[in-house]
């Protein structure tokens, strides 16, 4: 009987070619979901009666916020697995996810600002979600900066894992505390996602853009993890035998 899970791909040597084969498929999925989602969001979805055309940025904004939070949890998961089971590949995955997660957090903040200007006449409101997103962005930066500051990759992996796990425990607490803070200081409590009536096409569009971002994250993570593997394992035989490495 075959084992339920095959561990073969847990080693960089076997994962490297597999990742290379998977990338084109995920690129295709990214393009399909992206085109479909944007078509729905930009062309099909009706113009909002109160907010005009400007509201359409939420198709990007909401999906980016979702992805940034989701990726932090995924990153912490892989980092934790790497710390607990000492599997190199998991730690490399965590390091590979971090920049994409930070990019989505930044995208969410940026699109939030772009939406805020026409809606409320200001680039920035201390809305609970935006504030949490900002802190999440800082958490990503901390993770990346810590790993960049440590020369020994194994130590960087482990230290990053502890930080990511501490962060993942803290994210709900931070989110809750910011919500609490926001409800107490009334006046700025405008929620980005509280669109008057969420039409079905809008929801579908948002989901499709989120799927597109998800696939994009997978593509970027695989690309980056392949680069990390080559860099860290440059002295091993399997890297030396790769046809793209051999002269």
């Amino acid at each position: 009987m075959r084992p339920l899970i095959t561990w073969k791909y847990a080693s960089p040597q076997h994962f490297y070619p597999l990742a290379g084969k998977l990338i084109p498929w995920f690129v295709a999925l990214t393009l399909i979901f992206g085109a479909w989602g944007l078509w729905l969001g930009l062309l099909v979805a009706p113009t909002d009666a109160q907010q005009g055309e400007g509201y359409r940025i939420i198709f990007v904004h909401v999906a980016a916020s979702w992805m940034s939070m989701f990726l932090y949890v995924v990153m912490a998961f892989w980092a934790g697995v790497g710390l607990g089971f000492n599997t190199r590949l998991s730690s490399m995955m965590a390091s590979a996810i971090a920049p994409t997660g930070a990019m989505f957090a930044f995208l969410s903040l940026w699109t939030g600002a772009l939406w805020g200007k026409p809606m409320w006449g200001t680039w920035w409101v201390w809305d609970a979600r935006l504030t949490s997103e900002l802190i999440l962005f800082f958490l990503y930066l901390g993770f990346i900066a810590l790993q960049a500051a440590i020369d020994d990759p194994r130590r960087a992996d482990k230290a990053g894992a502890i930080l990511a796990l501490v962060g993942v425990i803290n994210v709900p607490i931070i989110y809750f505390s910011v919500m609490w803070w926001n409800t107490l200081h009334q006046g700025a409590s405008v929620s980005l996602t509280k669109a008057p009536s969420m039409a079905r096409t809008m929801l579908l569009g948002m989901l499709l853009v989120a799927l597109c971002f998800w696939m994009y994250s997978i593509v970027m993570t695989l690309l980056r993890v392949r680069a990390i593997m080559l860099e860290r394992e440059r002295h091993t035989e399997w890297v030396a035998n790769l046809k793209e490495v051999r002269p």
Binding site: I135, F138, A145, A149, I174, S177, W181
Partner: peptide, 19 residues
Amino acid sequence: LVSLLTLPLYVPALIFGAG
């Protein structure tokens, strides 16, 4: 680096303390 790592984690303490 230590401030970059810990200041975001201090947010709940700040909110509830000052609050």
